[in-house]
Nucleic acid binder design. Structure first.
Lengths: 218, 218, 218, 218
DNA sequence: AATGAATGAGTCTTCATTCAT
DNA sequence: AATGAATGAAGACTCATTCAT
């Protein structure tokens, strides 16, 4: 008999509004009043749907991540070889990030300062570790069937790919993108496929003493 | 005269202390009192050397960036071809980042939320744009002398490289690194040189309708 | 007509529920939502029966006090001499308090902080003054018929008895009672009847200068 | 080199101011701003000396209680027999309460609602239990040397005395005192010494069925 | 009549910054 | 020059009360 509301939908509206403001002003600079205003409600109403400021972010993150996870699964299910699955995974991840750009920017902001390794759902470290594991396995499977170059260090390459992904996200936050995102994706494809150089590169001798270098170039 | 040396040194001590605490607790969570304690001074003293909290970060950033810039110049001066200069630049950047890891982590934290396009010294966007410009030019020069594959989109690839760099930084902040940093650098070298795959990859047909895809793969 | 019965009964249910929660959590810490939950209604419903939070307490207090007043009258009507009326009054008061223990505890809580001398029904000061008046009169009547020791200061003794009563209440709130309430009542009876000591007590000389003491002991 | 302050003294000033305002407005209704104003400082300053609102009360309570405890010891040391020690204790307690009237009123307010049995320093129940123990022991010692009537129930009487004390405090909070406090103290002395009545009282027959009564009167 | 969703006034608490010493 | 005591602006959060349904 009181007002009837779709609680889920209203929570979603608030969550979306919050992400928008977080993106605009940054998580820390955002006041609850800002979120309320953006969502078109009173301050108190926010607390009917979320326990506190951090909780709004957490719940949005869970939503974001659930979509990501199921998307990854679907994308990989459509591919037939380890290498193609790897490709599908990379492609999906980059597309997903572009679609959830605001969320990503906010997570960089938020996780950039807070290490909360206690909460596994909210722990980027855990999520990254899982991602790297999946990728590493794909690389190794690809190597087993000679689809991927056997000389690759699978662990390092997995980390590299996740880093590349992170960089793509971060770049969208820090810098204005000048090139078309599509063309950057093409460049990534190109890079993964055949590297940058036209032919074997003549490597420079390490001039700084080579302390950290070793036998890096082939 | 000795006064001046003292001043500089004390400012440096405070700056270093601040970065250390920022890294540990995050910029926002760090209180001036924390910095003072870490630096072994009183709170009030901080304001003898810096205008405010943000100023401490800004000045450290300038120091970081000055070293970076001169290092880039030196590294490039030692190489003889555009491709090698590009390589030298990438190598130096990654080494530099590892050496200034705390600073980088703090910048991710700080710039992750604040967009201050007003202040050109403090604007990552500007700095990134410059970096990308240098890299793009190198790529184009490399292409002119057929050292670098002419089919590369120089702008997109420049952005990609900077992103890769960002990702490397970010990953150190967000995730624990599992692979040795050196082996990741090797993987990067490897990737730049010849891509991931053993031979031409058979690309999957895009199953999701290809809305965003176009003719991405060659 | 049945509506009216319902109304009264529901108000009573809410009032009882409120007292129970007030007792458990304290008046200030109790939220209207708690009362609603305890009463098995919605929050809004409370306001159909009471103007506000304080009003719930006020109305319960009036109910409590009405029962007390009529009980006092009945008890005194059954006794035949001033001294016996005094005894009956004391006995009834203590019994009443034990029966309405939760109410009493809540009043201590509530009146402990709020002085609202504006509302005479709700003013403990007024009620106490009346009680003391009744007792003082009884004492004086008892003294007139030589039933009560004439050397007693009737006003001070009246206040003492009310204080003793208060203390009994308060003690139930503050401390866990260790002795059986019945045995405490017995001790009170005993005390009123013949004091503590076996014979005349040799009073100590006041060593602290006796500023406040004077010739207190006979 | 910064402003030099007697931290102890300033904390004391704030504590005293706080008690005064708590007394006037009640603990719950008092805002930190009120305390600050009364103490003649800014709001923030309060937090330099106390962790939070409750802490102000807690620390004042500890001060109050320390004085009480040492006073009790001193008073009892000056008396030579159990009965006289009991008297000295009672006298001191009542005097102390009058001197610390504001504190007592505030404690009634505060403890009236909050049961915090977790915190042993702040637990009235513990303190009361200790007091009752001391008194009970005194009574029993007095009985052993036939100074105190052996028919007394020592536990119940101890509780009664503490209750009487409580009541005296509470009465000062709830009601305006009409009789002179000194004369109430005299009445207490009188009561303890020889009860209220001139001779053996003819007890009324319990008319209410006597469910709770038993053989209370002699 | 009954309800609980909505609200914003009100409060504690934090902390960057100032400034007397 | 160095300090830390003082401060108040600012912000998260609570909860009595209102009111649309």
């Amino acid at each position: 008999m009181p007002r009837i509301v779709d609680k889920k939908e209203k929570a979603a509206r608030i969550g979306t509004a919050a992400i928008a403001v977080f993106r605009r002003r940054g998580y820390h600079a955002t006041r609850m009043a800002d979120i309320a205003e953006e969502a078109g409600t009173g301050k108190g109403t926010l607390y009917e749907y979320f326990r506190n400021k951090e909780d709004i972010l957490r719940l949005e993150f869970e939503r974001y991540f659930a979509v990501f996870e199921s998307g990854v699964k679907a994308a990989m299910a459509r591919a037939d070889s380890p290498g193609q699955r790897l490709f599908a995974l990379v492609r999906f991840a980059f597309d997903h990030v572009r679609e959830w750009e605001d969320h990503c920017a906010v997570y960089v902001d938020y996780f950039g300062s807070a290490q909360r390794e206690d909460d596994p759902v909210f722990s980027l470290a855990t999520i990254y570790a899982e991602m790297e594991d999946v990728i590493r396995t794909l690389i190794e499977e690809g190597q087993a069937v000679r689809e991927i170059d056997e000389s690759l260090d699978s662990e390092a390459t997995a980390e590299l790919l996740v880093s590349l992904f992170d960089g793509f996200v971060l770049h969208g936050v820090f810098a204005e993108r000048h090139a078309q995102p599509d063309s950057v994706l093409d460049a990534i494809t190109r890079l993964l496929t055949s590297g940058l150089f036209a032919g074997p590169l003549q490597h420079p001798q390490d001039a700084d003493g080579g302390a950290r270098s070793g036998e890096r170039a082939k």
